[in-house]
Design a protein around this nucleic acid. Sequence first.
DNA 1: TTTTATTTTTAGATTTGTCTAAATTTTATT
DNA 2: AATAAAATTTAGACAAATCTAAAAATAAAA
Lengths: 219, 219
Amino acid sequence: MNFTVSEENYIKSIYHLQQHAGIVNTNALAAEMQTKAASVTDMLKKLSAKKILQYEKYKGFKLTDNGKKVALTVVRKHRLWEYFLVEKLGFEWDKVHDIAEELEHISSSELIERLQHFLGNPSFDPHGDPIPDSNGKIPKLNQQNLTALTLNKNAVVSSVSNQSPQMLEMLKHYSIAIGTSIKLIKRFEFDGSLEIKVLKQPACIISEQIAKNIFVHYE
Amino acid sequence: MNFTVSEENYIKSIYHLQQHAGIVNTNALAAEMQTKAASVTDMLKKLSAKKILQYEKYKGFKLTDNGKKVALTVVRKHRLWEYFLVEKLGFEWDKVHDIAEELEHISSSELIERLQHFLGNPSFDPHGDPIPDSNGKIPKLNQQNLTALTLNKNAVVSSVSNQSPQMLEMLKHYSIAIGTSIKLIKRFEFDGSLEIKVLKQPACIISEQIAKNIFVHYE
DNA sequence: TTTTATTTTTAGATTTGTCTAAATTTTATT
DNA sequence: AATAAAATTTAGACAAATCTAAAAATAAAA
C-alpha cells in the first residue's frame, strides 16, 4: 500500500511516541507533529481505515503490526540517508535531520537497498541510533547510560539522546562523539556530576544533565 | 522563493518544451504533463502571478529569466541525482528517471552542492545530457548527429535523444553506450542505413532511424 | 457526586491541485 | 466573410490536509 508524505510522518511520530508510552493520545501526537488536535483526529480516522492503527475514540491508539512495519521502513530510510549525508557528503551530524526528513519519503525500495549496500550495510546512524534492516529488525547494542557506568572501565560512546545544537556544542567542547573511548573516574555526590577521561584528553568534569544523555557500551 | 513539487514539475516541462518551440501552448504542456488543459490554465495563472511566466491569455507563454533559473536548478538536481544513481549505486541508466523525478524536489541547496562535489563535478549525466552548474550555466559539447559524421574519423558517443527501453535494448545489442568510441565506415543510399565500427566489435550496419538518435563528438 | 477542567471529536471553512462540462476565443475552411 | 473546428479559459465540483469554533466525552476537583 502507498502512503502520502503526511501519512508517513504521522506513522513515524506515533511509532516514536509509543516506544516510550505504549499507548498514544491525541494531544501528545499533536504536540509532536506541531499541529492541532482536530487535524490529528482527522488523520487517525484515515490511518485507522487503512488498518495502520488500533484506534478507539477517546481511548488513545497504537500502531498495528502492519503500521509498525511501515514506520520501521521510514525510520530505516531516514537513518540510512543520515549516514549517507554525514559519511559520504561530509555534513555535520546536527545538520542532517531536516534533509533526511525529506529524503525518507522517496518511495523506491530498490533505491534504499542499493543505498544500504553502497554504505557498507551500517548498523547505526551518525547519532548512534540503530538502522532497521529490510525486514524491520533493529540491531541491539548492550548500551547503558554513562551515569550507570562501572568506574575505571573503558567504554565507547554509542548514542546521544538529546541531539540539539546546544548539546552538540557541549559535546564538541569535550571532544565527545559517537565512537569516542571514554572512562568514568569518579562520581561527585554533591550534584551528581562526573569526572571522566576521554581518550587523548585530560580528565574533566561533566554535569549530570549532560551525562544522562550519553549512552555507552563496553568494548 | 519556494515552489511546490507540482509547480517545479510544470516549470521544468515548460523549460523543455520551449527549448524546441520557443513559445509554449496549453495543449502541448497538458500532453507533456499528462493532465488536462484546464488544469494547465489554472497553474499558468499561479506561475504568472509568481513572475515565473510571461503569459497572455490564448496567446501561449514562456518562462521569464527567473523562471528559467528555477527550471535549471531542477534540471541540475535531476541530472546530478541520475549520475549518483548510475555511478554510485549501480543502477542501469534506463531505470533512474522515475527515482530522479522524486529526488529532484529535495529542497536543500547545500545538499546539491555537496553532492556535486562528491560526484567529482560531472558535466554530463548518464544519458549524455549536460548538467547545469550552480549558476545555471550549461556545458556545451560540439556534438553532431551520427548520420552527419565524416567517414573514417573516430568519434565518441555523447548522447542519445531517444531514451526508451526499446532504444536501450538495441544499443546494448550493438554495444553502444555513452562514451563508446565509434567510426562511420559507409553510408548506404538505398535506405540511409550506416555501416559503423564500434571499438573492439566487428563492423555492423545500423538503421537510419537508430543513427538519427545517436549524437557524437570528435575526440 | 456534582461541578469544573481537560481532552477529544465533530462541523464547517480554506487551500492546493485536480477534474468535467460549458463558454469563449482563435484559427481554419468553405 | 461566415461558419466550422480547434484551442483555451471559466465555472463549479471534489479530495487531501489543514484550520477554528463549538459540542461531546472523559478525568479531576470540590
